[in-house]
Amino acid sequence: MSQFRAKTLDIGCFVNKWIIRDHTKRKVFKENEPERQALRYIIRNTTLPQRVRAQAQLQLSQMHCYTRPSQIKNRCIMGGKGRGIVTDFRMGRFQFRMNALAGNLPGVRKASW
């Protein structure tokens, strides 16, 4: 959604539309997280009146989809791939292999026994 997107490029890794989109979602989620948590608290608090809780439920479900953490997906920072990501290194499995074999990742060695 263009209304959330940064006006100038603010990430320094490999860039494509999916990465920009994911980064935008992350920023929007960060901004809206306290509000979401407050609403979640109201929803889960059984001591509050039912009406208030239902309203909070409605409000939470009507928030923009970019504010949802489930929209966020880890992508490869070297090639933008969305599947097969090694989370610790934020890379796709093949990029991870290439970089590890090239010695770019400190402490990573090919297993041998």
Partner: peptide, 8 residues
């Protein structure tokens, strides 16, 4: 979460 992608 916002720190996932390295900043420019």
């Amino acid at each position: 979460m916002t720190e996932y992608y390295p900043p420019r």
